[in-house]
Design a protein around this nucleic acid. Structure first.
Lengths: 200, 200
DNA sequence: GTCTATATCTGGATAGAC
DNA sequence: GTCTATCCAGATATAGAC
C-alpha cells in the first residue's frame, strides 16, 4: 500500500520534471509558466505544487542533474588509449547526446545565455576543474608527439560549440537543410575535421 | 524647431532600442519586462509606450534588422578571390562580429532556441537562399581543385557554431579561462582549423 | 512629450473541501 | 492526493493631468 503510493509519487514526480524540461528548455525560466507545465503534464497547477514547493524548485531539480550529465562523457576518456581515437570518441559521444537530449542542451543553453545565475559556481568550480584536467592530458599527448600541437582549450570549445549547435539551433538547421536527420552528415564532417586537426 | 523635436525622438527611439537589446538578449522576449527596459533606458514606462506601441513592437524592431546584420559578411565574399582567403575572411569577420555585437548574437540565439516563432519565414526564405548560393560557390571551388572537398553546409554550420559560441556562451568561456579577452586565441585556433580543413 | 494613477490581466502560490 | 476557488504580486497598457 505504502509502496503503491510511492510509485504514484515517483511517476508524477518524473512526469512533472519531463514537462518542466520541455517548457523550460523552450522558454527559459522566466518565460515559462506553471500553467504551461500543468497542461503539458496533464496535472493541475495546485497538484504540481503539491509535489514541488515552487516553480523554482522544479527548475533547480532539472538544473542540478544537468552539468554532471554533460560532463559524464569526459570521464570515459581513457588517458592510456589511442589519443586521436579517444578525442574522437568523446566528440562523437557529445554529438550523440545532442541528438538524444536536445531539450537538456537547450535548457543548458538558455541558462548560460542568461548569465548562468543559478550555476555560475558550478562553472568556475567543477567545470573549470574538469576542463583543466582534460587540457593537461591533451598537452601531454601533444608533447609526446601523439597528436598535433593545438590550443586544447579552444579545441574543447569547438567540440562543444559544434555538437550543441545541432541541438540548440535545430530549427535553423532544419530551415536550411530541410526536415530530416542531419546528424550522420554532421558527424562525418566533424570526424573529418578533428582528424585533420589532430593528426601529426 | 520641428527638426529639434525629431532629433529628440530619434535619440529616445534608439535609446529604447539599445535598452531593449540589452534586456531581451539576456532574458528572451517573455522573460523581459517593460520595467527593466524603462530602468535601463532611463525613461518611464508610459514614455516608452509613447515611442513604441507595445513591448512586442520593440522586440520586432530589433529582430527585423538582425538577420540582415548577420548575413552581411556573406556578401563580402568575392567569388573571384582566393577561395581559402575568402572563406577565412568570412570566418574572421563573423568572429569579430561576435566580439563586437554579443548582445545581437544572444538575442538571435534566444529567438532560435525558442523555436524562432517570429523569424521562421526568414530562415526558410532568405537564410536558406543565401546559404544555398554560398554552398554552390564552395562546391565550384572544390570541383576546380582550389579547396579540399568538404561538406559545405556543415562547414558553414561549424563557422557559425564556433563564432557564436564565444558570444552566446561567454559566461562559460570566462568561467573556464578566467576573465579577459579570449578572442585573439580563438581566432588563431579557428584560422588554423579552417586552413587545415580547406587546404588541398 | 512626459508624468502619476490606474484599469486589467496573468501568474505563482495557498486555503480548504472532498 | 487532487480539486475549485481565491489571494496577491507583478506586468502590459491606457487615461488624463501638466
Amino acid at each position: 500500500m505504502r509502496k503503491y503510493e510511492t510509485r504514484i509519487q515517483k511517476k508524477n514526480h518524473s512526469v512533472i520534471l519531463d514537462a518542466g524540461l520541455k517548457i523550460f528548455s523552450q522558454f527559459g525560466f522566466r518565460g515559462s509558466t506553471l500553467d504551461q507545465i500543468a497542461t503539458e503534464s496533464g496535472l493541475s497547477k495546485p497538484n504540481i505544487l503539491y509535489y514541488f514547493t515552487s516553480k523554482e524548485a522544479i527548475y533547480e531539480a532539472l538544473l542540478s542533474q544537468l552539468l554532471a550529465h554533460w560532463l559524464k562523457p569526459v570521464h570515459d576518456i581513457n588517458p592510456n588509449g589511442d589519443p586521436i581515437e579517444e578525442i574522437l570518441g568523446y566528440a562523437k559521444h557529445k554529438m550523440r547526446m545532442s541528438r538524444l537530449y536536445p531539450r537538456e542542451s537547450r535548457l543548458y543553453a538558455n541558462e548560460i545565455i542568461q548569465g548562468a545565475p543559478r550555476i555560475k559556481n558550478a562553472l568556475t568550480g567543477e567545470l573549470r576543474e574538469v576542463v583543466s584536467t582534460l587540457v593537461k592530458l591533451m598537452n601531454k599527448w601533444s608533447s609526446a608527439g601523439l597528436i598535433r600541437s593545438v590550443d586544447a582549450h579552444h579545441l574543447i570549445f569547438s567540440i562543444w560549440a559544434m555538437t550543441q549547435h545541432y541541438a540548440d539551433f535545430d530549427v535553423q538547421v532544419q530551415a536550411v537543410l530541410g526536415e530530416g536527420d542531419h546528424f550522420p552528415d554532421a558527424e562525418r564532417y566533424f570526424e573529418d575535421m578533428l582528424r585533420r586537426m589532430l593528426t601529426v
